[in-house]
Simulated assay, not measured.
Amino acid sequence: MTYSRIAGLGFYVPETMVTNHDLEKYMDTSDEWIRERSGIETRHFFTEGKDTVSKMGARASEVAMEKAGVTPEEIDFIVFATLSPDYNFPGSGVLLQRELPFRNIGALDVRTQCTGFIYGLSVADQFIKSGMYKNVLVVGSEIQSNILEKSTRNRDFAVLFGDGAGAAVVQATDNEDSRILSTHLHSEGKYAEDLLLEHPGSNLKNRMSTKIIEEGKHLPYMKGSAVFKHAVTRFPEAINEALDANNMTKDDIDMLVPHQANLRISEAVRRKMGLDEDKVYNNIQRYGNTTAATIPIALSELDEAGRLKKGDVICLAAFGSGFTWASCLLKW
């Protein structure tokens, strides 16, 4: 049997760190208000002229490939997850392909926002298990600081998000004791408008107008209470689905790495699952919500800290815009 495993991880965050106190200069908010509602203390914002979504993805990929012991020439396929591509088209996957000395390999862009990295892992897992590829690069990268209006009217969103990138080399293996066990993907589009960035969109003849800007409809919108309610339901569902598929229970989990949307959501899920604090990893305090990059950044930090041991059962779970939700269970 051919399986897939994560052979190397890497991440990159821009050098500019923005504190909650920095945001007080632009909107009616406070360090206490932000921490209480999200747990976030700092986040990183990109540098124009230096950082792009594809270039940040390349920096993370270089680290992941080095740790996996592979060169760009050995990568067979790229899966690039982002909600903030460099251009409307083409996608950022091909821009990453030209950034490093890859062969003329395929590049697939994934647009499932917060679940993008797990969706990407699932695609990589299937390609490898089918025998089509041996090394797939899965990347999550976001620049969101320039999507947000740093103002009081947009503060519920503006304080939450940061910029960053994470990457994983997913590699073929015949070792059933160190592999991706299963992935589980879901969506429920009837709630799409509860969390979205509507304009500029293709449903209007004039994609952008003064009226749209004045009404703030070019800014991300979130129905916060609805998102929270669905998240704390879907996260445990996705986690339990992965455990059931592998005849495991919550007691088998050595580390849960949830998408870093909000510390309050992660804590609610932890309590609902009955997991000890040391079995759930959170870094939203330092990076904010980096959307498709949150899980690979968190995994990279755990790996660098030596907290992922051979044979550990790791559960990845995410929920976000769409709504989409997903999970991945793996043995390290």
Rank of each mutant, 00 (worst) to 15 (best):
L9A: 06
Y287E: 00
G10P: 01
L137Y: 02
E32H: 04
T2A: 09
F319I: 12
P72Y: 07
G189M: 07
I213S: 04
D254E: 13
K134Q: 15
F319Y: 14
A245H: 10
S327D: 12
L197M: 15
E62P: 01
T249N: 06
A298F: 01
M255T: 11
E32K: 13
V257W: 02
M1L: 09
K55T: 13
C328G: 07
W332F: 08
Y87H: 15
K309H: 15
K211A: 15
T294H: 03
I6L: 08
Y3G: 00
I75A: 10
I213L: 14
I265S: 11
L83Q: 12
R264T: 09
G116F: 04
D22G: 05
H184N: 15
K55H: 10
H44R: 15
I180L: 14
S151L: 06
L243Q: 06
Q171C: 02
H218R: 02
D276C: 00
K331C: 10
I295D: 07
S225T: 11
D303I: 00
K25F: 00
M65W: 03
Y221H: 14
A64S: 10
Y281N: 00
I265C: 11
H184A: 11
N206A: 11
V18A: 08
G91S: 14
Y87R: 13
R59Q: 12
G201S: 09
V159C: 08
D28F: 03
L243M: 15
R103V: 00
W33P: 04
V280P: 02
A318R: 06
L185Q: 03
L196K: 10
M208K: 04
V280Y: 03
M65K: 08
Q171H: 08
A168T: 03
A261Q: 06
D156Y: 02
P258A: 12
A317Y: 01
N289Y: 09
E237L: 13
K211G: 03
L9W: 10
R103E: 14
A305H: 05
S178A: 12
L195T: 07
E267A: 00
S327L: 11
V159L: 07
D174Q: 09
I253Y: 06
M27S: 09
V169N: 01
V13E: 01
T291S: 15
M255P: 00
A293M: 03
T19Y: 03
A60V: 00
L9M: 12
E215A: 12
Q126E: 15
S84Q: 09
V269W: 03
A238I: 12
Y133Q: 06
Y133G: 06
I265K: 08
K310W: 01
S266H: 02
S178T: 05
I40L: 08
G69H: 10
L243A: 11
D276N: 12
A238M: 14
D174T: 13
D76P: 03
Y221R: 13
W325C: 12
F117H: 02
L197Y: 04
A293N: 02
G162T: 08
T291G: 02
L299Y: 03
S145I: 09
D86A: 10
V94Q: 10
I128P: 02
E41Q: 12
I147Y: 09
N246G: 04
A326P: 01
I265H: 09
P296Q: 01
I295F: 05
A261V: 14
K331A: 10
L330S: 05
E15L: 08
A64M: 06
M248R: 15
Y281H: 13
L275H: 07
